[in-house]
Amino acid sequence: MISVQNLTKTFGDRVAVNNVSFDVQKGEILGFLGPNGAGKTTTMRMLTGFIPPTEGCVTIDNLDIFEHPFEVKKKIGYLPEQPPLYFDMTVRECLGFVAEIHGMRGGMIDSSMDHVAELCGISHMLNRLTGNLSKGYRQRVGLAQALIHDPAILILDEPTAGLDPRQIIDIRNLIKDLGRERTVILSSHILPEVTNTCERIAVINNGNLMAVDTIELLSDKLGSEKTIVLNVKRPEHLDTVRLSSVSGVDDIKKHNDNEFVLTVSGGDDVLEKISASVVESGAGLTGIRVKRMTLEDIFLKIITGEKVQ
């Protein structure tokens, strides 16, 4: 549905997005994850045709966004980071205007407006000026604007930024609902947000795409390594050379007097061999525990430089 090839954007000497390629299938929710200033917004702006890429191209349903801007823009609903609202208009006028510039007329606008207002929970706010709404409601109106022409693709830039926890949950659920029939791309620098709503994630850092995969596959690829913490009573008896020869043990580090940290790969049998080896050496095993990588660890590992193939 959406295909991004070798997308590059430079601002002067600064490379904001560097050679990014990925595909999004119909009906998929893709999360764009990266720290602040990673190039998420720039990528999204190129996806929506707001700014042209320096190199590369974006095609949506096999149409290039810069060769067929009108056809493509009709299919996209875009919510920028700051909801684009006219503060001197009411919610109803804002939604009506957006519907009209998308070529909708008359009764179509009314029924569509009722539907999206209901969906975004702003039915009771239609006659308020957008300038007087709270941040959370402005965000919802922005989302309603993006949805009013019933686009097949939704692009949401940090949709929950600045909302309170209650509103975050509401918006997340709404996005999940929307994602049943639509293709959604959303960006965030908050990990749980992406893991809660998205099927696939794309991790971007310093303009480079570090990984695109489902969350399960990413944690399998990066999380196969485990860390084992060993506590022993008599560390002088522990034969580290013998221990490191146990297959599956990659590294041993002495943490403090009685504690060793082992990096291992493989299943539970490695654990069994390690404990057997420690017991044989007579070091007096007092504790052994396994630390798995959390999603935060994976995320940090990716953005600190490990490119996932």
Partner: peptide, 14 residues
């Protein structure tokens, strides 16, 4: 200034 240009430029308006 109010970033509504982003809305106009991403709508099917020339």
């Amino acid at each position: 200034r109010s970033r509504t240009m982003e809305l106009l430029m991403t709508s099917p308006l020339s």
